[in-house]
Design a protein around this nucleic acid. Structure first.
Lengths: 394, 394
DNA sequence: GTCTTGACGGAAACCGGTTTCAATGTTATA
DNA sequence: TATAACATTGAAACCGGTTTCCGTCAAGAC
């Protein structure tokens, strides 16, 4: 029944031309109410949905965005994707998932192959690691792109970016321990080559400084962001004579903190009675480890949602401020195209955006394709502290 | 440079017709070596990749398969998807991810909307829960589909299915405990409405039976497959007087086992010294809980790979046994289409398949579109026992 | 009342491929 | 040697939409 209807069929059934049906479906402004209703009646009656593929070919825009991720088994990825998926579900776009094994030496080729298909109208790159320079080339050639990354990029990094404020996060963690009365607070840094490790450390120093304390080099350790290095640091610390132990430890990510918990259990060290512990990230597991980990929460799913919102604005600016350009040069808006509810979910979502973002978005409309910003949008979301048993004696 | 080339451009540059270029790219058999080389030289020189969208429109097959999943934050999902992604990466197909919130009452509408776009040529439905009957309707209308599910379907369930042998899994868990010398072994079942819960229980009974033991009704509890119900069962069990405790417990999934670990820790019960524990699933976390959980491993990523392999065979049978049909009626094969390495990854993958699967696949070639099997393929993969500290006293 | 203007909607071109159909040159058959 | 059969390739139709171009008609201007 509602199987293989084409726009031609609908046109015939409604007694109008193909072009008219197309215009109705795409919310072309200069259409008489009567025509619109005549067409929509048939469309609804037969439950017609235009063929995406044909639409993509003719209109030059596939309603697909690519999402490039590390393996889904990495801690934060599923949560980020949840945010992306929940947002995308409310739009007329779909998500093509490219889960890349970044350890594969040919991954730049993989990316090129993907993009050369010209199937996706935009790309969301999640934690692209060392792929960044390569992706940047594509961006500069005109591919709409947004990055989610825990490395805050340099100021003039051209590509839109979403992440968190690591400095403040480090501050929150340390401040929490100070407020509990701890004074000898150790820090386990991430690898120095990562900017975020540096920033979290700076937040730690700042909090100490405000409390009138100076960072003690003896209480600074260096890890690799994985559980193994966490175990190593823990052993090193707990091997010292008891008087040289810290009272509390701020570990730069949850993975390393898990290592601490394991070693503590092995050695019969009570957390938080003997040593308090705070992590960073709030991975899903962190509330299930023993004891539940106090940690600085990164709003992963919100990061995903924000990033995809940004990307869709780049891919299809008309969604954001419908009509603006239409009234200028006669080009019609595509907002609410097809079967999505009138008004368009994107419009409402954009209304709830950061003020800064909204302002910048205006600039987008002025720019001509391919999309390009003179000053890039970098969105920094807030971290928040989640207090659990590992830092608070019962 | 290699930006907006069309097949027309390539044809002109090579001094041949569009059709010839298309045929070369699609491995049409009746092509002279000379023409092929002439075209391929240009294709390689300009690094040409045909536009997927146009291909989809003209050929009637989008090279997209949909993957329908519960929220990615569910335990097994990322691993299943990893298997899917790794397989798909080696083909010329892409994966469109639909992450559905099954708690949303309108999810059947969501599915309909997705499928009515006719964007994906096939659908992999992962743990579709109560969506199964609805999906089945789409399958019976001709949509190529494979389900991954922990409920082994009834024998004449028409849709291809991939899962594990829950009965044997339950047997393995129980047998392991028996081999360690335990005799009073409790079982915490999943909800009776799930067939897999029933099957795991049967495996448990069978192992007991072989050991000359009868299942003790006092040692059978009923959970809901979530940590909360695990905690409830644990409290109930440990509230009994010590002599009525079991020596070991086989819990029907890891989630509930986590609940047991939590309660045990609260109450100072040593695992496995006081009570041994075995779970089911081997979620990623299960090796990181304290103590690490002995459990029956479901090969999730392998399930994903197997299922997507099956789906691609249904979507494009030519991939599997190239040429067979071509020689019959002149229709040419599409194997190795486009830029994928000659021979086609699918062909080699299929060669390594179950014998049974290969045999059935032959039947696929005979069938005319829409794809349909008279007897459905149900693939049951093997579970394996992963021994960790929770069942083995150190 | 005629001319201008703009709203409206149909015809046709177009997007970039695949597939059918027919024409050509070759080779095998009689 | 004439001819049927086949291999090879180009021309054109087609997939199902979007967008351009243009003609028509009604309202407003002079």
């Amino acid at each position: 029944m509602d199987e293989k209807l084409t726009i031609q069929d609908i046109a015939r059934l409604a007694g109008v031309s193909k072009s008219s049906v197309s215009r109705v479906l795409n919310n072309y402004p200069a259409i008489s109410q009567e025509l619109r209703e005549r067409v929509m009646r048939v469309v609804r009656e037969y439950n017609f949905v235009p063929n995406v593929t044909a639409r993509g070919l003719a209109g030059g825009k596939t309603r697909l965005v690519g999402v490039l991720t590390p393996p889904l088994t990495w801690p934060a990825i599923p949560e980020i994707l949840r945010g992306v998926a929940e947002y995308i579900e409310r739009t007329s776009y779909e998500m093509v998932l490219y889960s890349i094994n970044f350890e594969n030496p040919t991954h730049t080729d993989v990316v090129d192959r993907i993009l050369s298909l010209r199937m996706v109208s935009g790309l969301l790159a999640i934690l692209p690691c060392d792929l960044t320079p390569h992706l940047l080339r594509h961006f500069e050639r005109g591919l709409p792109m947004v990055m989610i990354n825990d490395q805050e990029p340099p100021e003039h990094f051209p590509c839109p970016w979403v992440g968190v404020d690591n400095r403040t996060g480090g501050y929150q963690a340390t401040r929490h321990l100070l407020d509990l009365g701890y004074r000898r607070i150790a820090h386990v840094m991430g690898p120095k080559r990562y900017y975020c490790a540096q920033e979290r450390y700076e937040g730690y120093c700042q909090a100490l400084h405000e409390a009138g304390l100076a960072p003690d080099p003896e209480l600074l350790l260096q890890g690799e962001f994985d559980p193994a290095s966490g175990r190593r640091c823990a052993r090193e610390l707990f091997a010292r004579e008891r008087t040289r132990w810290p009272e509390a430890i701020f570990v730069a990510n949850d993975q390393m903190a898990y290592g601490f918990l394991e070693v503590a259990e092995e050695q019969g060290i009570q957390i938080p009675q003997d040593v308090a512990l705070v992590g960073f990230d709030d991975n899903l597991v962190s509330s299930h480890v023993r004891p539940p980990l106090t940690t600085v929460r990164q709003p992963f799913s919100q990061m995903g949602a924000k990033a995809i919102e940004l990307l869709l604005m780049m891919v299809d600016p008309d969604h954001v401020l419908p009509r603006t350009r239409a009234s200028q040069d006669g080009k019609h808006s595509q907002a609410g195209a097809g079967m999505t509810p009138a008004g368009g979910p994107l419009a409402t979502a954009a209304a709830g955006s950061d003020h800064q973002l909204g302002a910048r978005a205006g600039a987008v409309l002025e720019a001509s394709a391919p999309y390009r910003l003179d000053g890039a949008i970098h969105i920094q979301l807030d971290t928040s502290l989640v207090v659990r048993a590992s830092s608070v004696p019962a």
